[in-house]
């Protein structure tokens, strides 16, 4: 018991130091590092939203990018067609909220029909969502008047977001707020029901829970969080294209959660940091050797390496180390008391 308290106290100190470091960071680093971290923060929300599905519901959504990309498009279209003002940004948030809940509802209604869990329904769900994501991507590509099709949409952003350092702080606050909200959701009664569905859907059903309803709520929360991170991502880049709606984009989220460790929520933040830093490093190396022009080769290799050598991600690594240490201390204590008697 004391041990546990001790660790969480250490954790608090660690988080405090980390926060202080992050607050100071933009003042001591280059602009590109600041931008990289803004990106990490925003992608972390996206990855966390994915972890709710993957880690807490055991649901593989291959169309998850449709929320993310749509959020970016919504803010872009509003800024472009009505005006790049703060009220429009708020409107974009509201529309994304509504849009994501409706899209998640429709997606869930189709996907959660086949009940019973098991590999077959996971696979069916994966393929259905893959195709649903393709519909949205296709629509965005065809609807040229508004989205500029494959060329992508550039837009101006409100004055208050245009300073990179300030935007860094917005992104940081956004990350902290969303993390707290999602954590609250995971620990809420609804979150607990979702976890019990993941463990054994049939049992949850026997206990009288309408599992489809809970899964729908989970998908909606994940969709909204993903949409919000898309809005921020759009504002950060001042540009949006159909790339953000591709399967590749969804798989980036899957990769980030896997690198960090699934079902841990915070793992997604670590995963986002790792993946984005590696990606930007690979891009930097392009000037060193032409092989790094082909950074996708290394990126693909990362997928494979992570799956084979780090199946539980960094958080899994962390837990196994702390578990071992805890076991060691416990053993030690047992031995000591045994020695005394």
């Amino acid at each position: 018991m004391i041990l546990k308290k001790d660790i969480s106290k250490k954790m608090m100190i660690f988080l405090g130091v980390l926060l202080a470091a992050l607050v100071v960071l933009p003042h001591v680093s280059t602009l590109s590092t600041t931008a990289l971290f803004s990106r990490i923060f925003i992608m972390a929300i996206y990855a966390m939203s994915y972890d709710i599905l993957r880690g807490y519901m055991g649901f593989i959504n291959l169309g998850h990018a449709l929320f993310f990309g749509s959020g970016a498009y919504i803010v872009g279209i509003l800024f472009n067609n009505i005006g790049n003002t703060v009220p429009m940004f708020i409107l974009a948030i509201v529309i994304t909220l509504v849009y994501s809940s409706i899209a998640a509802f429709i997606m869930g209604k189709i996907v959660f029909r086949s009940k019973g869990g098991g590999a077959a329904s996971v696979v069916a769900g994966a393929m259905t969502t893959l195709a649903l994501g393709e519909i949205v991507r296709h629509t965005a590509e065809r609807w040229r008047d508004v989205t500029m099709g494959a060329d992508g949409l550039s837009f101006r952003i409100p004055q208050m977001f245009s300073d990179r350092t300030m935007f860094y702080y917005y992104a940081l606050v956004f990350l902290i707020v969303m993390t707290l909200i999602l954590r609250q959701f995971i620990n809420s009664p609804t979150g607990r029901v979702l976890m019990s569905i993941r463990e054994n859907e049939q049992r949850a059903e026997f206990l009288g829970f309408d599992t489809e309803k809970y899964k729908l709520i989970g998908l909606q929360v994940a969709g909204i969080a993903s949409g919000f991170s898309g809005v921020m991502f759009g504002v950060m880049n001042r540009f949006v294209n159909t790339e953000l709606l591709t399967v590749q984009q969804t798989l980036n989220a899957l990769l980030m959660t896997l690198v960090g460790g699934t079902g841990t929520l915070y793992g997604a933040i670590i995963g986002s940091g790792f993946v984005n830093i590696v990606q930007s490093q690979l891009l930097n190396f392009r000037s060193v050797h032409p092989i790094f022009e082909r950074w996708l080769l290394f990126f693909g290799a990362m997928y494979v390496i992570v799956v084979i050598f780090m199946p539980k991600g960094f958080m899994g690594l962390y837990y196994s180390i702390t578990d071992k240490r805890r076991a060691k201390i416990k053993n030690h204590a047992v031995k000591q008391t045994a020695g005394k008697s």
Binding site: R54, L251, L296, L297, G300, Y303, V304, V306, V307
Partner: peptide, 26 residues
Amino acid sequence: RVYGNVPAQILITLGLQVIFTELVRV
């Protein structure tokens, strides 16, 4: 190596897809 683990399969086959598609470009 990843039979029975759907997400791992998706990632590993996708990783191979990315690598080998890029190799085609090379």
